[in-house]
Simulated scan of single mutants.
Amino acid sequence: MEERANGVAQSSPEPALPFSRRLPRMLAALGLVAALSAGIGAIAAAGGLETVAADEPERYGIGETFVSSQLSIDVDRIAVVDELPGTGAFPDEDAGERVLAVLVEVTNLDVEPRNASGTGGLGTARLEGRPDDAPGVSVYGDADFSPVALQPDLPTRILLTWVVAADEIGDADVQLILPEAVKSDSTLFRGESYWSDTSSTVVISGEAEDLGAGRGDGSL
C-alpha cells in the first residue's frame, strides 16, 4: 500500500505474518537441522569422518603370515649380529655398530615379476623412528648383490638388513613399518603398470635375538 507525503509516494511496511502462519515454517526449519545433525552423527559413528591418520595398522609378529601389496609374507626371524657377510651391510666395529636382520619368506601373488627393493616390494620397509633409512634387500644365503626379482608364485627367503648402533636394539620389540601398495595401469605407456604406496601400513614387531659375533657365513 502506498501513501503520499509531500507529494512523494511511500510504501508502508508489509504487515507481519501472524504466529499461526509462522509456526509451520519454524517447525520445518527445526526439522531440517535435526535431520542434518542425525545424518552427520550416523556418518561419524560409521567412521566416515575419521582421518586416514587415525586408522590403526595391522600388526604381525614372528611366525605369522599375512598378505600385503599382493605379497604373502611369513615373518621368520629378527636378529642382531656383529656382522652378516653377503648382505651388503657393513657395520663399523670400532664405532660399535652391528647388523639388524629381518628374515621373511615372500611369495609374489601378482601375475608379473617385481623388484623386491622397489615400491610394492620390501625396500620401502622402515624401522620405527628411522623413516629415511632404507633396508638392504638380499636373497637369504645368496651373496649375489644383483637386484632381487620376485617371481610369481615362487616363495623366496628375503633378508632385510640395517646397520644399527650397538645400544640401539634393546629389550623392546623391533617395530618394522611396511607401507601397503596398489598396482595401477600406466597412462603413459600402454601395457605397462606400476606400484604406488598408499596411506595404509602394516607393522611387523618382535624381539630381536642377539646372535653375538654370528656364524661368519651370512646365515642366521
Rank of each mutant, 00 (worst) to 15 (best):
E50N: 11
V163K: 02
F66G: 12
A181M: 04
D144E: 05
A35H: 03
A165D: 10
E58Q: 10
L188W: 07
A38G: 08
E168T: 13
D132P: 01
S146P: 01
A101I: 02
S146Y: 00
G118T: 09
G39V: 00
I204V: 13
G47T: 04
L103Y: 09
Y140N: 11
E2V: 02
G86Y: 00
A9R: 08
A166S: 13
S219T: 07
F145V: 08
S117V: 12
I73L: 11
M26K: 15
S11V: 08
D92I: 06
G214I: 02
G7P: 04
F90G: 14
A208F: 01
V148F: 01
V174L: 09
L109F: 01
V80P: 02
E192D: 14
G218E: 06
V67D: 10
P131I: 09
F90I: 13
G31L: 07
N6S: 10
A125G: 10
D110G: 13
L127M: 04
G206K: 11
I78R: 03
E105S: 15
G61A: 00
A89D: 03
A9G: 15
N115Q: 10
R25T: 11
G31F: 05
L27T: 15
V81D: 01
D197V: 12
M1F: 06
G48Q: 04
G214R: 01
F66W: 05
D210R: 15
P15W: 04
R126D: 08
L188S: 15
R22T: 09
D82P: 08
S196N: 07
D171L: 12
A34V: 11
D82Y: 10
I204D: 02
D82E: 14
E3S: 05
E14L: 14
G39F: 07
E64D: 09
A45S: 09
R98G: 14
G170D: 04
W162Y: 10
G31S: 10
R25F: 14
A45N: 04
S12E: 07
A166H: 08
D76I: 13
D167I: 03
A149H: 05
V99D: 02
I73M: 12
G118Q: 08
I177M: 05
V164I: 10
S199G: 10
D173A: 15
L159S: 14
S146W: 00
V106M: 06
F189D: 15
A5E: 11
G216N: 05
